[in-house]
Simulated assay, not measured.
Amino acid sequence: MSDHIPFELQSEITKRLPVKSLIQFRSVCKPWKSLIDSSDFVKHYSGQQQHLLVRYQDAVDHKEKYVSIVDDDDTFPMQKVTVTIPPFVVNMLKHSTTMGSSHGLLCLYNDDMAVIWNPSISKAVAVVLPKRNYNEIWGTDLGFGVCRETLDPKIVKINYVLNPSSDIECVVCIPEVFTLSTGAWRSPYGSFLPRKSIRFSESRVAVDGVLYWLADDGTSEYNYSYLIILFDITSEEFKEVNLPDRLARNHARYLSIFKLRNTLAVLQFDVREILYDVWMMTDGVSSSFIKLFTICLSDVEALFVQEFRKSGEPVIDVRRICGQHDDLSLVVYEPNSKQINSLGINGYYYDVNAYMETLLLLDQPDLIIYGNTTPAFEA
């Protein structure tokens, strides 16, 4: 930029540039590198475009691959870029699962390790998942999100522990939180769950600094109700969101949750009819949900909602039976026309996550692994 342009104005201009350009500009001169690397610039930078990161097994060579698609109405889905995973992430996270995405960061995990990864700058940090010496671990659930105010990434781990002090068989939930700024695990500030009988599911999503879990009350395997448990990532407090009866008690349909237009969406899946009803929360705290539309396709053997575009259109993978072979496709469903458009990716085992460009993790050392430093808990 010209020396005649005030540096403050240069700073405002650079905040509107894509991450790829910013990384290149760090090599132009020391003032620009200092500006882009500063914690204030990283905190207040937010990319303008959403991307869809597609993880899949290639149908030709059967290798796992990642493709990033620019989620732009004018060019979608033509702008595709193959994403290279940092080598140390590949080595540590074999057979990994995506925990979720928040503020441009994705979190992957396996039984021993979690990795917080920024695909925009190809940088990641690893976190050892704590192993507890409880008498009996019934199970665990994990969630990931970023604080609204501080943009500090956090991993939440829910431990289901058999309480040995109880006269009857009783499973209690013990939460733990890893905070990137401290590099340590600890008990959350507000560690009390709304109910003791809650059972979390693997359906969870981070929305604007709040981590939501789909859960049930756990009172009976045959007589239960769905509910939503939220975890405020800043205050670290758990709260309960009740669902309307048509969602909470309809056991013939399965529920899952997603982020849709920066709010919480609940999807109700009918296995027999092979359709999804899409519901959106309207106020953030109560059981106020509205039904937006139904995803229903003809001549489909199976369908699975993967993610939502910035426009609100769902990205789904569908399976059709064509002669002796399964036709697996990743498509976008248009609710008004009820038409689908292919994303042009030939594969299977799809996993799709939306993310915005960010500079978070730019200040993190390369190849760093945070260890387990959590104090012991009592069941």
Rank of each mutant, 00 (worst) to 15 (best):
L106Y: 04
T84Q: 14
E334T: 11
I36M: 06
V54R: 02
T97N: 04
F269G: 02
A379W: 08
F192G: 02
P194Y: 09
V241R: 00
L193R: 01
H51W: 14
C173L: 03
D327A: 10
N336I: 14
Q324A: 13
S256I: 01
I5N: 09
C147V: 13
V83A: 01
Y226K: 03
L362Q: 03
D317E: 14
V156L: 15
D270Y: 02
K131D: 12
D141E: 15
S286W: 02
L292W: 05
H44K: 09
R26A: 01
I340N: 00
L303P: 01
Y222W: 07
D277F: 01
E12H: 11
I228D: 03
W117D: 05
E12T: 07
Q24W: 00
I229N: 07
E8A: 06
P175I: 05
I168A: 10
V177L: 03
D299C: 14
D112L: 12
T84Y: 07
K338E: 15
E313Y: 08
Y222L: 12
F88T: 07
P6M: 09
V207E: 10
V278N: 08
V332N: 00
V54M: 05
Q364T: 13
L343G: 05
E273N: 15
M280N: 02
L17E: 01
V177T: 04
S256G: 08
L260G: 01
E237P: 00
M1I: 10
G183I: 11
F7C: 05
V127W: 09
V81T: 09
P6C: 08
Y189N: 11
G371L: 13
R272V: 15
K259D: 10
S287V: 01
H103F: 08
